[in-house]
């Protein structure tokens, strides 16, 4: 287990950047920097991080960073990896993309890179909407959530990208949450120690887009996990296991009611009973699937 105290005091994502107060992406970038102690290169598609990293000539990034167009991060990282390999450099190439750049417009490049088993670490920080352009629905927006393009609430469930990536048979897939930074750091380090295509899906509650006070970013993230709305797991070589807080939540009685998570956010304030029931049904079904997978097949996906 990683402990707080052993994390480096060094900051690789410097303060005084243009992230919003309480921004989960900025927190995630800080943790990523500490996890790998600055020894990696970043590829960033269009996203909030394009803005957070600042305007020429200054950036908070203390790691080399290549910006790239929205749909192109996994493929640009593939090319960068190839070039660094030629130069004999083993430094990890890490994609840091939002859910729009991952679940939607970048999914083709992501799938291509995963299928080719490119030697890159792809991290999706999932704030569950196009927050940078002002809170529009993405494929990763959950059922019922208000966004500016779903003013009455989204009618479809969240696209399950980590499982889509896992279906490519890549060496490592994990989910993480900004509320559990040490779990995230551990997963980043484990991923970095492997080669081939590695994927981490980081749940990242956005105060602006989800309509909660900026002081609650971590609390909301924690509630997502504790209510079972977001599940922490990792899949190593095709075998899934629950991790961290989620390990004890297979038993439904251990999970907090999802209303606690929904009530904490303005984006769900309009939900009626039927919507809440639908979300409950969805969450229960996901857990049942996982339980079956773990108990009947030892977590073996294929």
């Amino acid at each position: 287990m990683v402990t707080i105290k052993e994390l480096t005091r060094e900051e690789y994502w410097l303060p005084g950047n243009s992230s919003c107060p309480g921004c989960p992406a900025a927190l995630g970038l800080r943790m990523l920097g500490k996890a790998l102690e600055g020894k990696f290169v970043l590829v960033v598609p269009a996203s909030c991080t394009t803005v957070i990293q600042g305007i020429y000539p200054a950036t908070p990034s203390r790691v080399p960073l290549l910006n790239i167009a929205f749909a192109a991060s996994a493929s640009a990282a593939s090319g960068l990896r190839a070039a660094l390999r030629i130069r004999g450099l083993k430094v990890p190439v890490v994609v840091w993309a939002g859910d729009g750049g991952t679940a939607d417009i970048g999914l083709q490049a992501l799938s291509g890179a995963a299928e080719r088993n490119e030697d890159i670490l792809y991290i999706c920080y999932d704030n569950e909407a196009y927050q940078n352009t002002g809170i529009q629905r993405s494929g990763a927006t959950p059922y019922g959530a208000w966004t500016t393009t779903t003013p009455l609430g989204k009618r479809e469930h969240k696209k399950d990208v980590p499982m889509i990536v896992a279906a490519h048979g890549v060496p490592y897939v994990a989910t993480a949450s900004i509320a559990y930074p040490l779990d995230f750091v551990e997963k980043v380090r484990k991923a970095a120690s492997k080669s081939g295509f590695r994927y981490i899906h980081l749940h990242a509650p956005c105060p602006v887009g989800w309509r909660f006070p900026p002081s609650k970013t971590v609390e909301v993230g924690r509630l997502a996990v504790e209510t079972g709305m977001w599940i922490l797991y990792e899949i190593e070589d095709g075998v899934l296991r629950l991790t961290g807080r989620s390990r004890v939540l297979l038993d439904p009685s251990k999970r907090k009611p999802i209303e606690e998570y929904l009530r904490a956010q303005g984006r769900f304030s309009h939900l009626d009973e039927r919507d809440v029931e639908e979300l409950k049904r969805y969450v229960e079904a996901r857990w049942r699937e996982l339980k079956k997978l773990l108990e009947e097949r030892g977590g073996c996906l294929r």
Partner: peptide, 30 residues
């Protein structure tokens, strides 16, 4: 507080005491 500060505006000293860097703290309250 140091771990969760999105801004890196909580300064962690050698002895693990902490201090807020008000130059950059955006006051999110996490």
């Amino acid at each position: 507080c140091w771990l969760y500060c999105p801004e890196g505006a909580v300064v962690r000293h050698e002895d693990n005491s902490v201090e807020i860097d008000y130059d950059y703290c955006k006051g999110c309250g996490i």
